[in-house]
Amino acid sequence: MTSLPSETKKKLGLVIDLDTCVGCHACATNCKEWNTGGHSAPLPDHNPYGARPDGVWFNRVHSFEVRRGNRPNLTINFPRSCLHCENAGCVTVCPTGASYKRVEDGIVLVNTDKCIGCKLCSWACPYGAREFDEDEGVMKKCTLCIDRIYNENLEPEDRQPACVLTCPAGARHFGDLNDPQSAVSQLTAARHGRDLMPELGYKPTNKYLPPRARKVDSADIGAPDELEVFKAEGFLGWLDTVLSK
């Protein structure tokens, strides 16, 4: 059923910290590693060791430079994956019922047994979250590691999306954004987490934390503008005077 639920019990999603992301691509790599054996397996890899490798990835890490006038430039590493939107246009355009948004947790999924590969959902997604699997002729996308987060065969601390678990910088956080008390909601509130392209009205669940203000001047870290000039006294002072001549 491709009509969207009016509300979902939970809004499971990710909070991604653009301040701490170092752009190492570990999240993308571990995402590929887990998902090529998971719910949507296999994820195609064409010509993986050749000059022009091509394949389906659910997570891609872009790097941007931001020039800000007379302030120092910023480097932004930007992991891009499905935002599990509340108002998921990719679901409503689906003519077959293959795409759906779950009432219990808000996760957007594709039933690849019903998908006809018309690609319309990828056109409807502003964020480029859906990719076409040429081998199977169907659409694939991030499942928020649905086969990890509810997986009772894993230790409780491992029941998180692969990208979150593997991030060495602690830049990715997973939780219920519908619960104002959850760690992700608190983090979003404290750091003014952002929706991407809010003007399109998709109401993405995932939030991006903008970079913190950079510490540019000595005053920013509580240091004096200039170091004090060394002034020796006594014997060392006499020595300093003699040697300075």
């Binding site: 490798p53 394949g55 990835w57 941007f64 931001v66 006038g69 932004i76 990828s122 991407l196 392209m197």
Partner: peptide, 27 residues
């Protein structure tokens, strides 16, 4: 607005992949 970065001139530093992917071919 696509990056959630209000101020500044944004330019690409590095793409996530070395050759065209589905998104670049389709869109």
């Amino acid at each position: 607005s696509a990056l959630g970065i209000d101020a500044g001139d944004v330019s690409v530093l590095e793409l996530p992949h070395t050759s065209d992917n589905y998104l670049m071919k389709e869109m």
